[in-house]
Every structure is written in C-alpha cells, then in structure tokens.
Simulated assay, not measured.
Amino acid sequence: MLQSPEGFMIEYALKLDFLTTNNEAEYEALIAGLGLARAVRAKNLKVCGDSRLIVAQVNGEFEAKDDTMAKYLRVVKGILTQFDEWYAQHVPREENTTADALSQFASSEIDNYPRSIYFQVLKTPTIHVINLIAPVGVARCWIDPIKTHLETGWLPDDAQEARKLSVTTLRYSLIEGLLYKRSFIIPYLKCLRPLEAEDALKEAHEGICGQHLRGRALTHKITRFGFYWPTMLADAKAYVKNVTDARGTHQ
C-alpha cells in the first residue's frame, strides 16, 4: 500500500507463486513497494512494515547473516539509494488493518477482486532475476528502439521516423533497465516482449483468473496486472478466438 503526500492511496497486492519463507515474503513485498514508489516518482519515503526483523535489517540495526536474506537486503539497499530521503518504521499488523486485508486477499483464490486493487503474481524470487540481462538470442521487437532512445538518445536516420519515435517515447519511462508505459493507471505498466505477452495471455485467460474471458475483458485483466504491449487488444481477441475454435473442434 502506497500513500502520496496528497493522501492518494494505491492498494497493491502481490501473490508469490513459489516456495518462500515468511521473511523472504516480507522482502518481496518491500521490493514491490519500493518499485511502485519509483514508478510514481516518489522522492521521500516512509516505509512501514510489520516485520520487526526486516525493518531492523533495513535500518542497519541487525545484520542479515543468512545468505538469501543478505541478497534481499542488498537489493533493497540498492533501490533505497535512488530516493532523496527514507526511513523504515515497524508497525504491528494489528495496527494496520488495510495492509493486513491486502495480504489476506493476495493469499486467497479470489477471482473478481476490487478494481481499486492492483494485483500481480510473481513467479520467481526477485533476487534470481533482478540482475539478469536478456539473452543474446532474444529477437528485437517494438521495445528496443524506444529503450535505446531513452538510454542513448538514438534516433532513426529517416526524419519522419525520428519524429515519430521522439513523440512515442514521451509515453514511456525506464526504471532499473526495464521499460514501462506511462498510464493513468498506477503503477506504470511493464512492457512485455512477444513471448512474455503470450505467457500473460495464457495465464490471465486460464490461470490466475480461474475463468475464460472475452478479448476486451482479457485485455483489461492483463492491464490490472500491470502489463502492456501495443497490440494487446488484437492479440487478446485472436487468442480467445483460437481457444474457442479449439474447443469447438474437440467437442
């Protein structure tokens, strides 16, 4: 849960789809919250957590002796350097009923969650993927020219294409090397490559949702999970049609 200086509240639930300890889950939630704060361009941060141990480690009062915990702590410390000011405070769970309700929601099998809540499923521990670089064999796609322009200022030689790219990139941001689309929906939407988009379509249609959706509803669900690619509506409609046709063939 994130609160802006103006009092605007963003409710965010994270479901961990892998085996983890309670302390590791606390770190995953903290990293997700810090990423959300980065996405909304927060400068000064107050972190409230119900784990006294994690708060103490982040504040430097306790050491993280376990190797996994030490890795998580290094990731958190690295992200915190990107804020002007921050401090962490322990808040007992019973004193933060909203956050407790979100944690209960994320661990449940609720399909029709409230639209005000941003919900994401994490398949892999953050410490296993945060420093990975995309394999050389990954095919270039729509993401690459936008990302290259934001990183280096590169523009195509063709004047018309250069203007088009300059305008397009105004709608995107790079956060820790990943491309996000700026949106009226908060947090920003993580941009997906084609193979990632295929996985998102399949999981949203048959996995996380627990129900079969039509094209627009499927697109909306994926957006609520925080993902984006330019052809998502057309791809969602095509995916639903293919699934429907396949079922009809097997009936």
Rank of each mutant, 00 (worst) to 15 (best):
T249V: 15
T21W: 11
H149I: 04
D100W: 04
E24R: 12
I130T: 07
G60L: 11
P230C: 13
S103Q: 05
G137F: 09
L233K: 14
D235N: 03
D17P: 05
N131T: 07
N112D: 15
E196M: 09
I79R: 00
Y239K: 00
V121G: 00
M1D: 12
A13L: 10
P156I: 01
L179Y: 12
G33H: 09
D199P: 02
V138D: 03
K241S: 15
S4P: 02
I54N: 00
P156E: 04
W142P: 04
A37C: 09
R247C: 10
G215K: 03
I10L: 15
P230N: 05
G177F: 12
A42N: 05
M232Q: 08
E24Y: 08
A37M: 06
D66M: 06
D235G: 02
G49S: 09
E161A: 13
K65F: 07
S183L: 10
P135Q: 03
W86C: 00
Q251D: 04
D158W: 07
A204G: 13
T126L: 01
H212S: 10
P125M: 03
I208Y: 15
V121F: 04
R216D: 13
I127F: 11
L170R: 15
E85Q: 12
S116N: 10
E161I: 04
T168N: 08
M69A: 08
A13T: 13
V121E: 01
Y27M: 08
G248F: 14
L195N: 13
A29I: 11
V243D: 00
H250E: 01
I10K: 02
A101M: 05
Q104D: 10
Y239W: 15
E85A: 13
Y27A: 01
P194W: 08
L80W: 01
E28H: 06
A236K: 07
A134P: 05
P230D: 09
G60D: 13
A25Q: 06
Q120W: 02
D84W: 09
L14I: 15
Q251R: 11
H128S: 10
D84P: 04
R171A: 15
G35A: 11
L30A: 07
D235H: 11
H205T: 14
L45K: 01
D144E: 14
L122M: 10
F83G: 00
L19K: 12
K181I: 07
H250Q: 12
D84T: 11
D144S: 13
T249M: 03
I146G: 03
H220P: 02
L14P: 06
H212V: 14
N96I: 12
W142D: 15
L155D: 04
L201Y: 06
L34D: 01
S173A: 10
D111F: 06
A200L: 05
E203V: 06
E63V: 09
L174M: 13
A70L: 09
C48A: 07
E109F: 05
D144C: 11
Q160K: 15
